[in-house]
Design a protein around this nucleic acid. Structure first.
Lengths: 158, 158
DNA sequence: TATTGTTATACTCTATAACTATA
DNA sequence: TATAGTTATAGAGTATAACAATA
């Protein structure tokens, strides 16, 4: 009985059957696979998931403030500062003072930022097609809908 | 037209419609909600997702080595060391030398570890029920199956 | 008083290189 | 030479407290 080590050493597959019953475990593994591939996809554009997300939200919501962007991204304000700093330093977005409320900055994408984003968005689209290639359209829609329901469940308990 | 900031400031909702079309974005948001709730669930047991996962795998695969555990968890060996150290220091698992291969350790859960894990697993089950409460059984099974397919897509591209 | 943006700081998770002891 | 475990280290991502400027 204490010789289970010899068995385990030979055993090629470790059983994670217990954990496979938990949605969270499967979600973590799938998310890590997707985010690793996304990182590879964005690397040529010198973007990460967070900077790509921020750039997209700024493009779609011109003039929004850092607080609004932080809330949309579910990121604490202090953490967003470095992200916005990086995008501004690279000339991808602008940070303009707002006359009506001089505490806030209005974020807008630049022409160069829009050009970079267009290419990155195409690459991300291809990445999504490859990662989700095995899924039917309806299946993908069901997945997104289910994920959103789970996200909402979490919000109610925070 | 440069006055979009005034509009954006008043706009209560920032649009993330573009990103909502990406599975990866929805997965990150759902995963963060789940893992935050899981962290709260495990805190009373002084466990985190990684230590809970490791403890479960050791319980289900007595005698396995650290390399096998690391591979099962998709964690690099150096990062697993501190996890195993913590569990061993707390008396939740044992780390025994294997006579047939003195390089490896055989990991086994202790009685105390099994007792803690039993309570933690019950709490995690309750957490899962709450987070996935809105899903039908079939829907949950479909979700897990889809997540596994996505995980496999990623493996093929690493 | 409350809010925006900021600084400083710390903790967790992840990744790589290089070492040791065994095989 | 190859593998198991280890050390050291670095880089992301996330979280909180506290501050200055502005409302």
């Amino acid at each position: 009985m204490p010789d289970d080590a010899a068995e385990a050493a030979k055993r090629p597959h470790i059983s994670d059957a217990t954990l496979r019953g938990l949605v969270g475990y499967n979600m973590k593994r799938a998310f890590m696979a997707v985010s690793a591939d996304l990182a590879r996809t964005l690397a040529p554009f010198d973007l990460r998931m967070l900077t790509f997300t921020a750039l997209t939200l700024v493009a779609d919501n011109p003039g929004l403030s850092q607080s609004q962007l932080a809330q949309a991204m579910t990121v604490e304000r202090p953490n967003l500062v470095v992200i916005v700093d990086e995008l501004e330093t690279r000339g991808l977005i602008t940070r303009d003072r707002v006359p009506t409320d001089r505490r806030t900055y209005a974020l807008r994408i630049t022409v160069e930022g829009a050009r970079l984003l267009a290419g990155a968005a195409r690459a991300v689209g291809a990445h999504e097609n490859l990662m989700m290639g095995g899924l039917a359209k309806a299946e993908e829609a069901a997945l997104i809908s289910t994920l959103n329901r789970i996200e909402a469940s979490g919000k109610g308990r925070s």
